[in-house]
Amino acid sequence: MKRIGVLALQGAVREHLLAIEACGAKAVPIKKPAELIGLDALVLPGGESTAMRRLIERYRFIDPLREFAKTGKPMLGTCAGLILLAREVEGYDEPHLGVMDVKVERNSFGRQIDSFEADLEIKGFDASFNAVFIRAPHIISAGPDTEVLCEYDGKIVMARHAQFLGCSFHPELTLDYRITEYFMKMISAEIQSLQA
């Protein structure tokens, strides 16, 4: 059975754990770097990216997370998690993990009062996906090897680069598990390629 970690420093951890379990994998909350060992993949949940970053620094998570990224194991970032993954964050000198080849802008749809839900057309999905955007970031630009999976209102809101999958919105706030299932397929492919 796949073991999938959810970075559990803060945010919508429970929802991701439930989504992973619903997709038939073992979900593991991760609070310390040593707990990353033995995982097949990792989810960086929605929450407050600034607060998560403080705790990541304090508990020396940066290097272990970058090492994890180097192993080729899939990582999914939703909202704040996407910001953590991005190679560049608009208006900031340094990225957080800086592993996914996208440039993001924080709070790019406005404040909470501007937060919204909308039906998205996602590449490869046969029906629209109801997505919840909360003080959401968006992807300003994507690298040459990054596949844009969804745009909303002219903004990139979901993309994949190699083993990294990121979205601006919160699939964890709905019971539609198609994005977690998509991530599961990435993990199966990675496990198969390791065995081959």
């Binding site: 919508a12 429970r14 929802e15 929450g47 407050e48 937060s115 909360i134 003080r135 706030l173 709905t174």
Partner: peptide
């Protein structure tokens, strides 16, 4: 905008904080 999901979801992002 302003749906229950959007309003409650914002609080969900504060959890553990």
């Amino acid at each position: 905008q302003g749906t229950n999901r959007v309003k409650r979801g914002m609080a969900e992002m504060q959890k553990g904080g």
